[in-house]
Amino acid sequence: MPNTVIEAKNLTKTYGKKSAAFTALKNINLKIYEGESVAIVGKSGSGKSTLMHLLALLDRPTKGEIYVDGKNASNLKNNDLNKLRNERFGFVFQQFFMNANNTVLENVLLPLKIAKISRKERKKQAEAALKIVDLESKMKNKAVDLSGGQKQRVCIARAVVNNPQIIFADEPTGNLDSATGDKITDLLFELNKKQGVTLIVVTHDEDLAKLCNRIVRISDGKIISDQTVRKDYQKQASRKRETEAARVRNANEKKGGKK
């Protein structure tokens, strides 16, 4: 059995108070395993986005707990949550969220800048991330000059630049035409398959959902179905563990070399 990366226990989220209270999520229990690609599918207002925000530790649940790698995240302080998101998670949003006046490179290295990584090192890592999305040539362009598809590729580069364990993608193709959307989808699943990154996609697009190995359907704040389509992700998970181990080894060697 692969490792559980995120587990939600009795997750409830209520907005507002008393008579105006609105329960967006009711008693959600969900385990996500390493290397999976999970689609969270539902109509707008179903609570799928709320669930993603809770799983991504962007918001705290009203009731229930979230465990990341077996550790209870509700006990963590804000700064530890920030650190966890910064180091383990990558985000891709429907509206891209880029700093339009900054260069592509600046946009990609933002998570590393927040992580206090040195100027030289973050440039190196950002260049590597841009290579994955095949946009090294646009490195010095301003983000505003890119097309929609290119922007989303830059966002994927930003999401992978910190070598995350999990990538959260919120309607990643929602703002793109189908051809460019497909390219983005290919990129995301390539990361999932080749590098073993756990992928959590929130979408209402059934075609995109079908590409994932697991589909979780949400309606009125409850999980109405949870089906695992394929099980080939386990191989990917072990691959991810290997690459992770290699990365740690490399880092250790570098440290050793400096001494």
Partner: peptide, 16 residues
């Protein structure tokens, strides 16, 4: 506003 939201999502603390 959105930039601040993004920075916070990417792990920047309120203090920063």
């Amino acid at each position: 506003t959105r930039e601040i939201g993004l920075e916070k999502a990417l792990g920047m603390s309120s203090g920063k």
